[in-house]
Design a binder for these strands. Structure first.
Lengths: 361, 361
DNA sequence: AATTATTTGTGCGTATGTATC
DNA sequence: AGATACATACGCACAAATAAT
């Protein structure tokens, strides 16, 4: 005997009927009374079956009129698989590349991409997370907002993980959440950048770092490591920290400082990223200081402006589009439960261009 | 008397109970038998109420165990409002700006953004549309793929419109679909660009245009209009057409042509966009031809590369982030049924930089 | 314009099956 | 093994919306 419940059998018969008769949107199906006779079950059972199908998006009912086909595919609104992607910015810098990489891979697998950007604002991150969680998410890729701080939205991330929705962090991860991540080796990157300046004969090396994300701290750590290894001086006055909020203000400080005073402080600069490096160079140029003739600069990310800006920047590259593709591929593995945890670091690579000059004594 | 159905009353009592007792995920609620006594209704009515609440995402049931709180907010997966955005590219050029503008405005209203890119491929457009339509879309913004051709996905767009989901095209719109759009006045843009070269004394003006989208055709039309008005020669050999697929090939043609021959053809170039203009200039530079000394160039879009590239491009600006914000605002109006149709054109603006030289006789 | 038949919606009672503790 | 909880299933009655007469 068939151990299927009767309402299940009725459901299947109704669906097969829709397909056999090739019924379209708004076409009527048989009445409940008809089906009672036809399937020899009670009205209750028929209604139970129809209720399910309404819920699944196959049918809709109208009192006094009848029951009609809604979506002949049985696809309910909200049935589509989608993956959330949250980054700090969309339009700036290296993010378009990363996002494009994710979209490319994710759409290959039939997912749509839900995209939100936080502008590096914790409240916005919470708002986007809340919005997205009300959608049917299959997985989530997050570039953390202000990753040095313990995450304010831990409750939401925990809720996602509790529901079995995998979360993958890129670029950095919050200290207080245990999840998968794909990051670059920022410490090594900072080390390589600084080491290159040292190898080019620079003895006094300044640093400009971002205070409120993990990359800034990692690159700073690598910078310290290289200086310590070479027995070069590490001094607070050579290190400038900025945050999302104080960026402009901090850069303004570099206006109208005499070349002598600058050279006293240091001849080489390790700068948090290509964007800041470009702004720094612009400020210097305005003050009559030339890069790389007067000061040398190494920055990070190998963004397009590193190649196309006023000065061709020597910079530490890490994957952008590939990072996106890799993140998407990893998330797909996590969603398929093939693996439960992914921790991956990309190796940084030095790209030598024209923002560093060799010092000879 | 209260005319609400009893099951509705029971539903509300259960919900208020969850809120009053501040019940969380996995907390049990009263059993069906308990509630029969408590609310003085039949078991059927209780079950009907619970079935509804399960469906809405408030509760889940487990046979033999009980009924438990699922989401204390009552939000079902797929309840979140989202807006689809389909563009040809995400990472290139002016699109990050536009997308960012849309995201900004849309998230203010509590929507999430579903993003897909077609790489100017009709099949990919169809795939993305299908994916998105299975999600719960409140509205859709589309930058058309190959907009000169009649749209291959008309059936899907029609289906969306039939379901009352507004569709807004940006940049261009398909000829065979009647929907809202926000575009720039491409004909005027082409006219202004060409007119500027004429005003600077150029008599023989070449054009490089994109064949497979409406913008290319519009700009070409404006180019013709300006030449005709000034009684200047219009010749096929001065006009180069390319498509997404033949872009590289066509640009390759400009390699190694002697300056004399080039000048014979024309001294001014109207070029489809800043990106192509930049590639063109690069090819010229490789061949020893200088811009603007030897040849003058006017292009379109005022992308960031127009300002930051090797040659500062004189270009026709149109709004980018503002276009995104405006598109989002318009879609919000369409979704609220405040209006049913929006047709808007942005005025182009000439940005004079350094890629055109004045010819004196 | 009122009536009637049809169709879905609400609601109760009862019985039996099955999973969990 | 027994109590408890939800699941399936039948039957009945009346209400409300719709369409046709």
């Amino acid at each position: 005997m068939d151990n299927k419940p009767k309402y299940q059998v009725v459901k299947e018969k109704i669906i097969s009927d829709i397909k056999v008769k090739d019924l379209k949107y708004n076409d009527p199906i048989r009445s409940e009374l008809d089906m009672m006779d036809l399937f020899k079950v009670s009205r209750h059972t028929i209604r139970r079956a129809i209720a399910d199908l309404v819920n699944e998006g196959w049918l809709y009912r109208q009192q006094g009129k009848g029951t009609f086909v809604d979506n002949p595919e049985g696809l309910k609104n909200g049935t589509g698989k989608s993956v959330g992607v949250i980054t700090t910015y969309i339009n700036d810098y290296i993010f378009p590349e990363i996002i494009s990489g994710i979209e490319h891979r994710i759409s290959e697998e039939g997912y749509s991409m839900l995209l939100g950007n936080t502008n590096n604002d914790i409240a916005k991150e919470r708002q986007i997370l809340t919005n997205m969680m009300n959608s049917k998410l299959s997985g989530l890729i997050v570039e953390p907002t202000k990753s040095v701080f313990p995450n304010h939205n831990k409750d939401l991330y925990d809720q996602l993980l509790a529901k079995g929705i995998p979360v993958l962090f890129i670029h950095a991860c919050y200290g207080n959440i245990q999840t998968s991540f794909i990051i670059e080796d920022d410490i090594k990157a900072g080390y390589i950048a600084t080491k290159y300046l040292i190898d080019q004969g620079h003895k006094f090396i300044c640093g400009i770092f971002k205070q409120d994300d993990m990359q800034g701290h990692g690159r700073y750590e690598g910078y310290l490591k290289a200086l310590r290894e070479a027995d070069l001086p590490i001094d607070d006055f050579r290190i400038v920290w900025y945050t999302t909020e104080t960026k402009k203000l901090v850069l303004e400080q570099f206006k109208n400082i005499s070349l002598e005073k600058l050279k006293e402080q240091g001849t080489g600069y390790v700068i948090y990223n290509d964007q800041i490096a470009n702004s720094f160079i612009q400020k210097m140029t305005e003050g009559g200081v030339s890069i790389p003739e007067d000061l040398s600069v190494v920055s990070f990310d190998n963004a397009s402006i590193a190649k196309n800006g006023p000065v061709q920047l020597t910079t530490i590259a890490h994957p952008k589009r590939e990072l996106g593709v890799e993140a998407a591929s990893s998330l797909i593995k996590l969603m398929s439960k093939e693996v439960t945890m992914i921790k991956k670091k990309f190796e940084p690579e030095l790209i030598i261009r024209n923002s560093v000059s060799k010092l000879v004594e």
